[in-house]
Design a protein around this nucleic acid. Sequence first.
DNA 1: CTCATGTACAACCATTTGGTTGTAGGTTAG
DNA 2: CTAACCTACAACCAAATGGTTGTACATGAG
Lengths: 108, 108
Amino acid sequence: MSDAEIDRIFQALADATRRDIIRQVMRTEQSVSTLAGNYQMSFAAVQKHIAVLERASLVGKERRGREQIVHGNPEALRRAARLLDAYGDIWRQRADRIGDILSESPKE
Amino acid sequence: MSDAEIDRIFQALADATRRDIIRQVMRTEQSVSTLAGNYQMSFAAVQKHIAVLERASLVGKERRGREQIVHGNPEALRRAARLLDAYGDIWRQRADRIGDILSESPKE
DNA sequence: CTCATGTACAACCATTTGGTTGTAGGTTAG
DNA sequence: CTAACCTACAACCAAATGGTTGTACATGAG
Protein backbone atom coordinates (compact mmCIF):
# COMPACT_ATOMS: atom_id res chain seq x y z
CA MET A 1 0.00 0.00 0.00
CA SER A 2 1.68 3.17 -1.20
CA ASP A 3 2.12 6.36 0.77
CA ALA A 4 -0.12 8.15 -1.71
CA GLU A 5 -2.88 5.60 -1.16
CA ILE A 6 -2.65 5.94 2.59
CA ASP A 7 -2.64 9.72 2.25
CA ARG A 8 -5.86 9.56 0.26
CA ILE A 9 -7.58 7.31 2.77
CA PHE A 10 -6.74 9.41 5.82
CA GLN A 11 -7.50 12.55 3.85
CA ALA A 12 -10.90 11.17 2.95
CA LEU A 13 -11.61 10.42 6.61
CA ALA A 14 -10.61 13.88 7.80
CA ASP A 15 -14.07 15.36 7.25
CA ALA A 16 -17.20 14.65 9.28
CA THR A 17 -19.53 14.84 6.28
CA ARG A 18 -17.48 12.25 4.43
CA ARG A 19 -17.32 9.97 7.44
CA ASP A 20 -21.08 10.23 7.63
CA ILE A 21 -21.50 9.42 3.95
CA ILE A 22 -19.42 6.30 4.43
CA ARG A 23 -21.60 5.24 7.35
CA GLN A 24 -24.72 5.80 5.32
CA VAL A 25 -23.72 3.91 2.21
CA MET A 26 -22.29 1.03 4.23
CA ARG A 27 -25.67 0.59 5.84
CA THR A 28 -27.65 1.05 2.62
CA GLU A 29 -26.53 1.97 -0.84
CA GLN A 30 -28.08 5.26 -1.88
CA SER A 31 -28.37 7.57 -4.86
CA VAL A 32 -26.28 10.72 -4.93
CA SER A 33 -29.30 12.99 -4.58
CA THR A 34 -30.74 10.96 -1.70
CA LEU A 35 -27.43 11.34 0.06
CA ALA A 36 -27.27 15.03 -0.76
CA GLY A 37 -30.67 15.48 0.86
CA ASN A 38 -29.15 14.64 4.26
CA TYR A 39 -26.85 17.63 4.38
CA GLN A 40 -27.19 21.40 4.44
CA MET A 41 -24.72 22.01 1.65
CA SER A 42 -25.38 22.12 -2.07
CA PHE A 43 -25.75 19.08 -4.27
CA ALA A 44 -22.45 19.85 -5.99
CA ALA A 45 -20.64 19.99 -2.66
CA VAL A 46 -21.85 16.51 -1.78
CA GLN A 47 -20.82 15.32 -5.23
CA LYS A 48 -17.31 16.55 -4.48
CA HIS A 49 -17.20 14.75 -1.15
CA ILE A 50 -18.24 11.56 -2.88
CA ALA A 51 -15.52 12.14 -5.44
CA VAL A 52 -12.94 12.33 -2.64
CA LEU A 53 -14.19 9.04 -1.22
CA GLU A 54 -14.04 7.51 -4.68
CA ARG A 55 -10.47 8.70 -5.20
CA ALA A 56 -9.60 6.84 -2.00
CA SER A 57 -11.65 3.99 -3.46
CA LEU A 58 -13.63 3.66 -0.25
CA VAL A 59 -16.88 3.89 -2.18
CA GLY A 60 -17.96 3.18 -5.74
CA LYS A 61 -20.75 4.39 -7.96
CA GLU A 62 -23.01 2.31 -10.13
CA ARG A 63 -25.46 3.75 -12.63
CA ARG A 64 -28.96 2.41 -12.14
CA GLY A 65 -31.55 3.95 -14.39
CA ARG A 66 -31.16 7.68 -14.22
CA GLU A 67 -29.76 7.54 -10.73
CA GLN A 68 -26.20 6.93 -9.64
CA ILE A 69 -26.03 4.54 -6.70
CA VAL A 70 -23.19 4.96 -4.20
CA HIS A 71 -22.06 1.88 -2.32
CA GLY A 72 -19.22 1.01 0.01
CA ASN A 73 -16.30 -0.83 -1.54
CA PRO A 74 -15.91 -4.01 0.58
CA GLU A 75 -12.44 -4.86 -0.66
CA ALA A 76 -11.03 -1.38 -0.05
CA LEU A 77 -12.83 -1.07 3.27
CA ARG A 78 -11.29 -4.30 4.46
CA ARG A 79 -7.84 -3.11 3.42
CA ALA A 80 -8.43 0.21 5.14
CA ALA A 81 -9.65 -1.58 8.24
CA ARG A 82 -6.46 -3.60 8.34
CA LEU A 83 -4.42 -0.42 7.93
CA LEU A 84 -6.21 1.29 10.79
CA ASP A 85 -5.84 -1.76 12.99
CA ALA A 86 -2.14 -1.87 12.28
CA TYR A 87 -1.74 1.72 13.43
CA GLY A 88 -3.92 1.04 16.43
CA ASP A 89 -1.80 -1.91 17.47
CA ILE A 90 1.52 -0.15 17.10
CA TRP A 91 0.32 2.88 18.98
CA ARG A 92 -1.13 0.94 21.83
CA GLN A 93 2.07 -1.04 22.11
CA ARG A 94 4.28 2.03 22.12
CA ALA A 95 1.96 4.00 24.33
CA ASP A 96 2.07 1.24 26.90
CA ARG A 97 5.83 1.22 26.85
CA ILE A 98 6.44 4.92 27.15
CA GLY A 99 5.15 4.92 30.69
CA ASP A 100 7.24 1.89 31.64
CA ILE A 101 10.47 2.86 30.00
CA LEU A 102 12.02 4.28 33.14
CA SER A 103 10.97 1.59 35.59
CA GLU A 104 11.34 -1.54 33.48
CA SER A 105 14.49 -3.12 32.12
CA PRO A 106 14.90 -1.84 28.57
CA LYS A 107 14.45 -4.98 26.48
CA GLU A 108 15.27 -4.84 22.71
CA MET B 1 -14.61 12.58 21.10
CA SER B 2 -15.79 15.51 19.02
CA ASP B 3 -15.95 15.66 15.24
CA ALA B 4 -13.33 18.39 15.27
CA GLU B 5 -10.97 16.21 17.29
CA ILE B 6 -11.41 13.31 14.91
CA ASP B 7 -10.92 15.64 11.96
CA ARG B 8 -7.62 16.80 13.41
CA ILE B 9 -6.38 13.27 14.01
CA PHE B 10 -7.13 11.98 10.52
CA GLN B 11 -5.86 15.21 9.05
CA ALA B 12 -2.60 14.78 10.93
CA LEU B 13 -2.25 11.26 9.59
CA ALA B 14 -2.87 12.26 5.98
CA ASP B 15 0.77 13.07 5.30
CA ALA B 16 3.63 10.61 4.98
CA THR B 17 6.17 12.91 6.63
CA ARG B 18 3.94 13.31 9.68
CA ARG B 19 3.30 9.58 9.89
CA ASP B 20 7.04 9.09 9.85
CA ILE B 21 7.61 11.66 12.57
CA ILE B 22 5.12 9.84 14.76
CA ARG B 23 6.93 6.56 14.18
CA GLN B 24 10.24 8.15 15.05
CA VAL B 25 9.21 9.83 18.27
CA MET B 26 7.31 6.79 19.46
CA ARG B 27 10.49 4.78 19.19
CA THR B 28 12.72 7.46 20.71
CA GLU B 29 11.95 10.98 21.77
CA GLN B 30 13.96 13.43 19.70
CA SER B 31 14.74 17.10 19.46
CA VAL B 32 13.08 19.13 16.73
CA SER B 33 16.33 19.70 14.86
CA THR B 34 17.33 16.05 15.06
CA LEU B 35 13.98 15.18 13.52
CA ALA B 36 14.34 17.89 10.90
CA GLY B 37 17.65 16.35 9.88
CA ASN B 38 15.83 13.27 8.60
CA TYR B 39 13.93 15.06 5.88
CA GLN B 40 14.73 17.02 2.75
CA MET B 41 12.53 19.97 3.58
CA SER B 42 13.45 23.04 5.59
CA PHE B 43 13.58 23.20 9.37
CA ALA B 44 10.52 25.45 9.44
CA ALA B 45 8.52 22.97 7.36
CA VAL B 46 9.23 20.21 9.86
CA GLN B 47 8.29 22.57 12.66
CA LYS B 48 4.92 23.04 10.99
CA HIS B 49 4.37 19.32 10.64
CA ILE B 50 5.10 18.90 14.32
CA ALA B 51 2.65 21.70 15.08
CA VAL B 52 -0.06 19.79 13.19
CA LEU B 53 0.67 16.68 15.23
CA GLU B 54 0.56 18.74 18.39
CA ARG B 55 -2.79 20.27 17.46
CA ALA B 56 -4.11 16.72 17.16
CA SER B 57 -2.34 16.13 20.50
CA LEU B 58 -0.65 13.03 19.12
CA VAL B 59 2.74 14.35 20.23
CA GLY B 60 3.93 16.78 22.86
CA LYS B 61 7.02 18.93 23.28
CA GLU B 62 9.13 19.34 26.36
CA ARG B 63 11.90 21.89 26.73
CA ARG B 64 15.15 20.31 27.81
CA GLY B 65 18.05 22.72 27.97
CA ARG B 66 18.09 24.62 24.73
CA GLU B 67 16.50 21.78 22.83
CA GLN B 68 12.85 21.01 22.48
CA ILE B 69 12.17 17.29 22.81
CA VAL B 70 9.25 15.80 20.90
CA HIS B 71 7.62 12.73 22.37
CA GLY B 72 4.53 10.65 21.59
CA ASN B 73 1.53 11.33 23.78
CA PRO B 74 0.59 7.89 25.22
CA GLU B 75 -2.87 8.90 26.37
CA ALA B 76 -3.86 10.46 23.02
CA LEU B 77 -2.26 7.63 21.07
CA ARG B 78 -4.28 5.10 23.00
CA ARG B 79 -7.48 7.04 22.35
CA ALA B 80 -6.59 7.34 18.66
CA ALA B 81 -5.83 3.64 18.51
CA ARG B 82 -9.25 2.87 19.92
CA LEU B 83 -10.82 5.19 17.37
CA LEU B 84 -9.03 3.52 14.49
CA ASP B 85 -9.93 0.08 15.79
CA ALA B 86 -13.57 1.07 16.01
CA TYR B 87 -13.57 2.13 12.38
CA GLY B 88 -11.71 -1.00 11.43
CA ASP B 89 -14.27 -3.20 13.15
CA ILE B 90 -17.30 -1.51 11.69
CA TRP B 91 -15.86 -1.57 8.22
CA ARG B 92 -14.88 -5.17 8.35
CA GLN B 93 -18.31 -6.08 9.63
CA ARG B 94 -20.11 -4.11 6.94
CA ALA B 95 -17.73 -5.18 4.23
CA ASP B 96 -18.35 -8.79 5.10
CA ARG B 97 -22.08 -8.29 4.89
CA ILE B 98 -22.22 -6.45 1.61
CA GLY B 99 -21.17 -9.54 -0.24
CA ASP B 100 -23.73 -11.69 1.57
CA ILE B 101 -26.66 -9.33 1.39
CA LEU B 102 -28.17 -10.93 -1.68
CA SER B 103 -27.83 -14.54 -0.63
CA GLU B 104 -28.74 -14.26 3.04
CA SER B 105 -32.09 -13.41 4.56
CA PRO B 106 -32.14 -9.67 5.14
CA LYS B 107 -32.24 -9.34 8.91
CA GLU B 108 -32.88 -5.91 10.52
C1' DC C 1 31.58 37.74 27.07
C1' DT C 2 31.01 35.84 22.59
C1' DC C 3 29.58 32.75 19.34
C1' DA C 4 27.25 28.86 17.55
C1' DT C 5 23.15 26.20 18.18
C1' DG C 6 18.17 25.37 18.57
C1' DT C 7 13.89 27.30 18.20
C1' DA C 8 10.02 30.36 17.15
C1' DC C 9 7.58 33.04 14.10
C1' DA C 10 6.30 36.27 10.38
C1' DA C 11 5.73 37.03 5.55
C1' DC C 12 5.19 35.29 1.35
C1' DC C 13 3.78 31.97 -2.43
C1' DA C 14 1.52 28.15 -5.08
C1' DT C 15 -1.71 24.63 -4.69
C1' DT C 16 -5.52 22.26 -2.68
C1' DT C 17 -9.87 22.24 -0.29
C1' DG C 18 -14.59 23.04 0.55
C1' DG C 19 -17.96 25.58 -0.75
C1' DT C 20 -20.98 28.24 -4.14
C1' DT C 21 -23.83 29.10 -8.65
C1' DG C 22 -24.81 28.17 -13.25
C1' DT C 23 -25.08 25.48 -17.42
C1' DA C 24 -25.72 21.42 -19.98
C1' DG C 25 -26.74 16.45 -20.91
C1' DG C 26 -29.21 12.05 -20.10
C1' DT C 27 -33.18 9.46 -18.62
C1' DT C 28 -37.67 8.54 -17.11
C1' DA C 29 -42.61 9.85 -16.38
C1' DG C 30 -46.92 11.32 -18.39
C1' DC D 1 -42.88 14.86 -27.34
C1' DT D 2 -42.30 17.53 -23.26
C1' DA D 3 -41.41 18.34 -18.74
C1' DA D 4 -39.27 17.01 -14.56
C1' DC D 5 -35.50 14.86 -12.41
C1' DC D 6 -30.65 13.26 -11.60
C1' DT D 7 -26.18 14.04 -12.56
C1' DA D 8 -21.84 16.03 -14.37
C1' DC D 9 -18.88 19.70 -14.70
C1' DA D 10 -16.98 24.37 -15.26
C1' DA D 11 -15.97 28.77 -13.17
C1' DC D 12 -15.36 31.19 -9.34
C1' DC D 13 -14.10 32.29 -4.35
C1' DA D 14 -12.23 32.22 0.46
C1' DA D 15 -9.57 29.76 3.43
C1' DA D 16 -6.33 26.18 4.59
C1' DT D 17 -1.95 23.47 3.34
C1' DG D 18 2.69 22.76 2.57
C1' DG D 19 6.40 24.78 1.43
C1' DT D 20 10.01 28.67 1.35
C1' DT D 21 13.26 32.53 3.31
C1' DG D 22 14.43 35.74 6.70
C1' DT D 23 14.63 37.66 11.26
C1' DA D 24 14.81 37.50 16.22
C1' DC D 25 15.66 35.43 20.58
C1' DA D 26 17.33 32.01 24.22
C1' DT D 27 20.61 29.08 25.86
C1' DG D 28 24.78 26.45 26.34
C1' DA D 29 29.85 25.94 24.99
C1' DG D 30 34.43 27.81 25.21
